[in-house]
Design a protein around this nucleic acid. Structure first.
Lengths: 343, 343
DNA sequence: ACCTTATGCTAAACCGGTTTTTCTTATGTC
DNA sequence: GACATAAGAAAAACCGGTTTAGCATAAGGT
């Protein structure tokens, strides 16, 4: 139970009566480059192995200024979309020698600021951020410092950061247009009260379709705080208040889940009484009865793009990010919930 | 775009023509204790604020040996169970000033060892680990070093680590017993080929019930590698091969999902043709049609217990963990899928 | 024989803090 | 007036590495 003292580079040096710089060079594979003899190199590596020397990462980071860690800031790690992204990013990062430090914002500005501060103090090498509105200053500051940053899911106006996201507006339009094509004419849109870019884009997609065909708009906006608790009642009340609605497009996966529960409670049959489309394809939608048509974001591609852009920035000779926006189109996965039932 | 130089403690000291130790004491609130004059204290804090000085966390960690970070090693962060635990733990940790570095093992021993090595080099202060079999040595080594460690979900034989888990055997027995009580007599158990403690315990729970009532055993064990890909076919074939089965207990949430898909394909009605119980309560089970009875692990309690035990170890004066096992009982959530249908 | 260059390694500064030790000066006590 | 003590702050060692500059010695060129 006694805390064994870890072997340091100095211990190795002393053991062989050489200087620690020599050990450092050898351990870092710079023996040849520094013209250190084969013989000594061998000996040092031998002792390193014997004594089980592992470099102290903190000391290394302090000296080099690189921590080999990436800060991943998501809205909520327990959300299927984010946990999948996290899983994919982690694997990629790990393969490139980076570790992930993650945290959930819950779209809380104060918490996010505090997280950014913590990450900054920890000197993470780069950031992958799903930003709430209100942290523009902080992110701009990071970028100006030359720190690699990529935003995803939503971007921030007036922040020239690299960004990876999906074609929210187009794919929402397409989803609603598909409903239209199936013959539905009273299409509702259930979304969050949110100024976030991705939500605004999705809303614009819906409104675009409404305008294009001169349909009546049925819009329900739910406050973020109520997305779990009372969303079911809200949606239920909304559907009861507008019995004419024959199809609903949900702007997020969790809203769709609440919506399905509301429909169950009201005894509405899908798609007979009402058709359903959801944004984000979660496992539930495939298994639900009936299976739910949804807009599937290509998570693997998004994750790959994110990590690639970040790694590129990390390697780059500080050119500063140019605010490159990469849009990865979503795919509409058509299932039973949008089948037109002959009346 | 020019990398602004961060202000260091030395910058502050120089500015005021004092020593950096004085600054350090003041910044760390030890001014009084170190008998530093009110006057100087004020001045220093003023300059600290003006220059926007933030201590370098790496340097602090190097000097103190504390990194204020916790390594969280789960099987797969994209699994709902683990991502929920992660989310809850992160929040708690954050409130105690700790950050989480996480990683998924995918039950790969080599990867886990490499992760443990990385975390160790990074000097994380403590570990929360869902361990695959095969890392006993490494974990024992951590504990012997005096590093705080808590295992969860499954424990390792011969590793005297603190552990938090659920009553796998009892709750599986209870789930199957509930099926028995509903009148089902041909109860199958679908599990993984796995020597992990939690899987063995669940299996034992099933076998206990079978033995208690002298029932016929229907056991299907699926290799971990096939849990996604071909599990549907496997389960389907199994059910077809044993048409007498009137109820199935699934040992994990994802096996249950595959099982439900298999049943869909075979056109089996739940619970009319076959009853279903699953381990772990995921959102899908509540919304599935019919809703699926499941064994719900109390995630919040598990997370709280985990972080509390770890924080306790972190504060403790190195007594070494005593291999305390905390078992938190699961709750059977009864839903439609296990209703006895009169024949 | 002398200068140059290559070889092989060491010394020392540095990264940015924490913490123990030491020093100076003022004050109080007998 | 001598001496102990306290106040206030500086100095220095340390954490464990990286990296630049430098110093011997040997080999090669003329």
């Amino acid at each position: 139970m006694v805390k064994k003292k870890k072997v340091s580079i100095l211990d190795i040096a002393k053991k062989l009566n050489i200087s620690k710089s020599t050990v450092s060079f050898i351990v870092n594979g710079k023996a040849r480059e520094r013209r250190i003899s084969e013989e000594l190199t061998e000996k040092v590596l031998q002792v390193v192995k014997e004594m089980g020397y592992k470099p102290n990462h903190l000391a290394q980071s302090l000296a080099t200024g690189k921590t080999n860690s990436i800060g991943l800031i998501v809205e909520n790690i327990s959300d299927s979309f984010f946990s999948n992204i996290a899983s994919l990013i982690e694997e990629k990062a790990y393969n490139s020698g980076y570790e992930i430090i993650y945290s959930s914002t819950n779209d809380d500005v104060a918490k996010t600021k505090s997280l950014l501060r913590m990450f900054r103090e920890r000197q993470v090498d780069g950031y992958i951020i799903c930003p709430p509105i209100g942290v523009e200053e902080e992110i701009r500051a990071l970028i100006e410092e030359g720190t690699p940053v990529v935003l995803f899911d939503r971007h921030l106006p007036n922040v020239a950061a690299d960004y990876v996201g999906t074609d929210n507006q187009e794919s929402t339009y397409a989803a609603c247009d598909f409903l239209y094509g199936q013959g539905f004419r009273h299409i509702a849109f259930v979304t969050l009260v949110s100024a976030q870019s991705q939500m605004q884009e999705r809303l614009a997609g819906y409104q675009g379709l409404i305008a294009a065909h001169g349909l009546e708009s049925y819009l329900l906006e739910i406050p973020y705080q109520l997305r779990d608790t009372s969303a079911i009642e809200r949606i239920g009340a909304f559907l009861e208040a507008h019995p004419g609605i024959d199809a609903v497009c949900f702007a997020t996966n969790y809203l769709a889940v609440r919506g399905l529960q509301a429909m169950q409670r009201l005894g509405l049959k899908i798609p007979g009484d009402i058709a359903v489309v959801a944004f984000d394809d979660i496992e539930l939608f495939q298994l639900y009865s009936p299976p739910i048509t949804s807009v599937a974001q290509p998570m693997e591609e998004i994750s790959n793009t994110l990590i690639n852009i970040l790694l590129q920035q990390l390697q780059a000779v500080r050119l500063g990010s140019k605010g490159k926006k990469v849009i990865i189109p979503s795919r509409l996965t058509i299932r039973e919930s949008t089948r037109k039932v002959s009346t």
